[in-house]
Amino acid sequence: MRHDEMIGKVRTLARLPDSGTAERATRAVVSTLSERLPSGLARHVAAQLPPDLAAAMRRAADAADAAGAGSGHAGERFGLAVFAGRIADRAGTDEDTALREAAAVLEVLDAALAPELTERMAGALPSDIRELLPVERAMGDREE
């Protein structure tokens, strides 16, 4: 999926006023997601994204590795509250808006990524964040 197409879909799904706001939201979610995922998985996700979004995801994965948070094996451990807070800080919004934007970005990522990669990503997330994924909304709660 092309960058402009992804941003346009995020804008529509999250009901954002303009492309700049959708771009900020997308970068905030991608960066925060990259911190939560194992760095190797984050790099696999980045490989399927448009170059500028991939770069944002790789930078966050590199920073996590440099901080010793993952060393390529595990992402930083945090739940939905921290996830929403980090997105809100990066996007310059409140946490409720950040969650709505995160759900939109994750839905667009779900459509952009290979299905097996989306499954791996879902498996690496805690249940509270995983519920933002479109598959989880359709399936309801799953056991950890």
Rank of each mutant, 00 (worst) to 15 (best):
A28V: 04
A42C: 02
T118A: 09
A114Y: 02
L117F: 03
A55L: 08
A25L: 05
M139W: 06
V135D: 04
A46W: 06
I129L: 05
A67Q: 14
R2H: 00
A84G: 05
L133N: 03
E5W: 02
R27A: 02
D65C: 12
E143L: 11
M121H: 04
A111V: 00
A138Q: 09
A104M: 04
A54M: 09
H44V: 08
E5T: 02
D62Q: 14
S31C: 07
L53W: 15
A47M: 07
H3L: 10
A42W: 05
R100S: 12
P17M: 00
A46I: 10
L133W: 07
R2N: 03
E76T: 09
V135I: 08
D89I: 11
A42G: 08
A69P: 00
A67V: 05
D4G: 00
A91F: 09
A14R: 02
M139V: 14
A124C: 06
R58N: 15
D18I: 01
D110Q: 13
A14L: 07
E144N: 01
R59G: 12
R59L: 08
D141N: 02
R130D: 08
A91Q: 11
P17E: 03
A64S: 13
R27P: 01
A111T: 01
L80P: 06
P134S: 09
L53P: 14
L16W: 02
A103Y: 08
K9N: 00
L41H: 03
L106N: 09
D52H: 15
R142L: 15
L109Q: 10
T21P: 01
A28P: 05
R27D: 03
P17F: 01
P38E: 14
E119A: 03
G92N: 14
R43N: 03
D94M: 03
L41I: 07
R2K: 07
H3F: 11
R100H: 11
A98F: 05
A28K: 04
E5R: 11
P126C: 06
L117Q: 03
F78H: 07
A69H: 15
P134F: 04
A22L: 04
A104Q: 07
S19P: 05
T21W: 00
A84N: 11
G140D: 13
T12K: 11
D62L: 12
V29Q: 04
A91M: 13
D110F: 15
V30F: 04
R142A: 14
A61W: 08
L132N: 08
P17Q: 00
A81M: 02
M1S: 03
E144M: 01
P50Y: 13
L16C: 04
I129K: 01
L49Y: 11
A74W: 10
P17S: 00
D141G: 06
R100N: 09
P17I: 00
A114P: 01
I129C: 02
A61K: 06
E5K: 10
P126W: 04
A28N: 02
G85A: 05
M1K: 11
S71G: 10
V108H: 07
G70C: 09
E76C: 08
A60I: 06
E5Q: 09
G85K: 10
R86T: 13
G85M: 08
E101N: 11
L80Q: 15
